[in-house]
Amino acid sequence: MIEMIDVKKTYPNGVIAINGINVKIKPGEFVYVVGPSGAGKSTFIKMMYREEKPTSGNILVNGLSLPSIRNSKVPLFRRNIGMVFQDFKLLQTFTAYENVAFAMEVIEKEPEEIKKRVMEVLDLVGIKHKARMLPSELSGGEQQRVAIARSIVNDPKVVIADEPTGNLDPETSWEIMNIFEEINKRGTTLVMATHNRDIVNNIKRRVIAIESGKIVRDEHRGDYGYEI
């Protein structure tokens, strides 16, 4: 499903972000990516959705070799993965409904199907009643629910989340994690970079720890392992 082979990434300013990573993530897995700030977590995640290209090595996602995808084809690749970010990345001038529907409009789905499916996922993340509200009228947790709804609306095989609870209070974080667990139960692969020790230690899943651009730990049901 996701495979990295000898991946190295050096930024133009000389910073080595990833220094030789080999990893395999199987379909349906739930993986936490942990590590101190500046360890290379973000680069690791960004390379999975082809926001960054590795300097050397190969990355396979859904059978596609990402380094060889042309820039213009990147959006097409991204249609098959869902993405959730710390800052939600919602279109501020679009309502909750429109934000989710947009992901279906870009792949030219039928309007009837869009209407049905968008309400379905908004219901799944528990925010159907606020479909007509703008992001500015929603709380952080609600905005993240909209973002999650958008990430799964096209039924991707993989959802990649970069610090999805980073901006949320503990209680809301748990609610968001419940939604992620639900999504994972349905068979979607989930890769989540996080700093949230409580979550990692309580919802036990595979933990990949990255330090100085290398995987220093890869445990089946691991702990967060860092002091905050």
Binding site: Y49, S72, V74, P75, L76, R78, R79, M83, K89, L90, L91, Q92, T93, F102, A103, V106, I107, R150, N154
Partner: peptide
């Protein structure tokens, strides 16, 4: 620009 970035993230082609 953020709007364009988000559009690309959810898979909108440049033409779109």
């Amino acid at each position: 620009r953020k709007e364009i970035e988000i559009m690309r993230l959810v898979g909108a082609t440049n033409t779109f």
